[in-house]
Amino acid sequence: MNDQQKQFVLAFVAYAAQRDLPLEKLCRLSGIELGTLTPGGNFEIGPKQFNDLWLNACHLSNDPLFGLHLGESLQLAALGAVGEIIKSSTTVGQGVEHAVALAPLITDLFEMSIEHDAQAFTLRLHPDENRRAASPFAFGQMTSFFLVFAVHELDGLILARIRPERVTMPFAEAAAPELERILRCAPTRSDNDYAISFDKKYWDMPILTANYALQESLLQKVGSAASGKVGSGSWQDKVQQYLLKNAYLGIVSLEEMAANFNVSPRSLQRRLKDEQVTYQDLADDVRKSLALHYLESGGYYVKEISYMLGYNELSAFSRAFKRWTGTTPAGYQKLS
């Protein structure tokens, strides 16, 4: 395994832990020694183990769309060298070309290509039939992961919620609503075509490389932050960490958060209530934490911070900040 494949496995296991899966059981069922999965470690995982890792993650989470939800939650900054290449690009098109060229470093289950026409550019996955036959379950999950990852990372590159023009893939009818939610586009069923198309206007848009730095900063903040108020296994801790890691695209809704954890919004609300907290409480705590983090960094204007935290009006952000701290954002920034 190369470093990028190892980085992906570590990100996979970290997400499984966030989903509260029993990691020892997940690895044991997949023929993997959990203790060997360490950053910089010299572990090796074969095709069957990788296939079983996906299979058992879906089974233990009771989530057949585990790959889609992983893609929805992961950032470029979590994939090491891939993010560094995107960071060095100046336009979305260059970033996409670099990412496609690097795809074989992450998986050998398929290759990727870029197609252009007058209206759109399309990312297409080309299966390696021999490797698909050896790891059929992993293949299905990895193709789903790459398609949704493309959507959410284009979001991150230009700080906008992008809607694909078309998505083509195999899928079960029961999965269609969740696919449409995550991909923001009703998928078209195909037995053996894996492709996602975006409006051509995005191709030459400049990448906001500062946003990549923001992703890295948030990940570092999550890594150094204390655990939740009732322990690292609590729902409020998992929700807080998810909110922090994905806050470069704004604060996600309760419905989106629940879907990513494969529970209903009502169930998530009930579990948080059992821990004597509400989703709104956690979202406000994260907004406050991020506001202080951005203001102390000195790298953002107050209006930018207001926008990043999801406030439509600067005045609304200022009122919330004064409620949290007793002073205005500008006043706090001067003190910092």
Rank of each mutant, 00 (worst) to 15 (best):
H59F: 08
D3H: 04
A210Q: 07
G35C: 05
C58G: 13
H126N: 08
V13F: 03
I162F: 06
R166I: 02
A258P: 08
G298K: 14
Y307D: 15
A176Y: 00
T143G: 06
L70K: 09
Y202Q: 15
R271I: 12
M257Q: 00
I85G: 11
A176L: 05
Y300I: 12
T91M: 07
Y301Q: 10
V151T: 05
N262S: 07
V302S: 14
V222E: 06
D284E: 14
V96G: 00
C27N: 11
D204M: 15
L53H: 09
V230Q: 04
C58E: 12
G41A: 09
G298H: 12
S89Y: 03
N51E: 11
P170N: 06
I305W: 03
N246V: 03
A259W: 02
N246A: 07
L214G: 05
A120N: 11
R184V: 02
V92C: 15
A283V: 05
V82R: 12
I106C: 06
V263R: 07
L272P: 06
K6S: 02
A316R: 09
A120I: 14
L179S: 01
G67V: 12
N2Q: 08
S315H: 08
S135V: 12
N246G: 01
G228V: 00
L26M: 10
Y242T: 11
Q94G: 11
T90G: 03
L74Y: 14
L268M: 07
E165C: 15
E178Q: 01
L219G: 11
Q141P: 13
E97I: 13
R266S: 04
T122R: 09
N262H: 14
Q49A: 13
L65D: 05
F139C: 08
P39K: 00
S318E: 08
R19L: 07
F317C: 02
F110P: 10
V286W: 09
R124P: 04
N42P: 11
Q215P: 10
V92P: 09
Y294H: 03
A283K: 03
S267E: 10
S318P: 14
L21F: 11
H69Q: 11
S264R: 06
A172F: 07
R19G: 00
G95N: 05
S264F: 07
Y301A: 10
L23P: 03
L314S: 04
H116W: 15
Q220T: 10
A11S: 13
L147R: 05
L292C: 04
P39I: 01
V82E: 03
A225H: 11
N246S: 14
Y194G: 02
L254M: 14
S217V: 08
D193V: 10
